[in-house]
């Protein structure tokens, strides 16, 4: 192909022109990210280290660590952090417990139903989260359908108050909010498995539990870590679900940020709390990412 006519090498472009094409394609998007993503993050970092007007700051920047120390040492916030950890972890475990078998069914058993089931999972995610939270609130309330139903069948003669405005309610709503992102990475990992390995395991005398534990789980571990990465961080920073179905016992760190920033107008401590949550997210992401990578190398 090149033997016929080899075009003369184009003259080297002047230095300035080499930047023109990247600038044309990436100039506006990058400027937007710098001004409206990195900019706000840096401003928030500054505000988190600034003595606020509420604490006698003079308007100019006064470096202080009190915002962080106040937020970290507050016993109430520590309690909320524990609640947040419990709720997020319970919701994550519940989702994994459903997601692993569900992904298995979709990947290996569903046949022609595979695509429709995936489509419904995508639909579940596309539904407006506020509509979903509202729907649960309607079902779980004191006069809600679930309590009405239970009383009619005669399982209880008094409405169960703990259904709504409780940790249980938040866990349930969160678990149903992110299930799509838990299932799909695990499904992806399962699609990559050669189904013959299950037959080989069976031929070698492994029961279903041994096969699951020794063959399936190691192979889908990277997918599980991706799910953790995608889901656990939004779970522990969520604030709409606890605000609407959590009551006082389901109060989470996201609500603390909301109350600091919007209720008490304390931007400085709100910023400090946000930075702490950001650091926790980053640490978690790092660990999950490492684990996902290590596992991929082994398998």
């Amino acid at each position: 192909m090149e033997s016929a006519t080899i075009p003369a090498p184009a003259p080297r472009r002047p230095r300035a022109h080499r930047w023109l094409r990247p600038l044309a394609f990436l100039g506006t998007p990058t400027a937007l990210l710098l001004v409206l993503f990195l900019g706000p993050m840096l401003v928030m970092l500054g505000v988190a280290f600034d003595r606020g007007l509420l604490d006698g700051g003079q308007g100019a920047f006064n470096l202080t660590l009190t915002n962080f120390s106040d937020v970290i040492t507050d016993p109430l916030y520590r309690e909320v952090a524990v609640t947040t950890f419990e709720i997020a972890t319970a919701a994550m475990l519940a989702q994994l417990l459903v997601a692993v078998p569900l992904a298995y069914v979709i990947a290996f058993k569903a046949g022609r139903w595979q695509l429709p089931i995936l489509l419904f999972l995508v639909l579940a995610d596309e539904l407006n989260p506020m509509v979903r939270i509202y729907a649960w609130r309607m079902l779980l309330g004191r006069e809600g359908l679930i309590n009405e139903g239970l009383m009619r069948i005669g399982i209880t003669d008094q409405p169960i108050d703990a259904l709504l405005f409780s940790q249980f309610a938040v866990t349930l709503v969160l678990a149903t909010s992110y299930i799509t992102y838990t299932v799909i990475p695990i499904y992806g990992a399962m699609k990559a498995i050669d189904a013959n390995v299950f037959e080989a395991a069976r031929d070698l005398g492994a029961g279903w539990w041994t096969t699951t534990r020794r063959v399936l789980l190691p192979l889908i571990a990277p997918g599980i870590f991706v799910s953790l990465l995608l889901v656990y961080i939004p779970l522990f920073t969520d604030f709409a679900s606890p605000a609407l179905v959590g009551g006082t016992s389901g109060y989470m760190l996201g609500n603390v940020v909301n109350d600091l920033v919007l209720e008490s107008g304390d931007l400085n401590r709100g910023a400090a709390m946000s930075i702490i949550m950001l650091v926790l997210s980053a640490l978690f992401a790092l660990v999950a990412y490492r684990l996902a990578r290590i596992n991929r190398l082994e398998s």
Partner: peptide
């Protein structure tokens, strides 16, 4: 998380 981007935007 969107919560943190939202708060950062508000402060900004």
């Amino acid at each position: 998380p969107w919560l943190i981007i939202g708060v950062a935007g508000l402060i900004f």
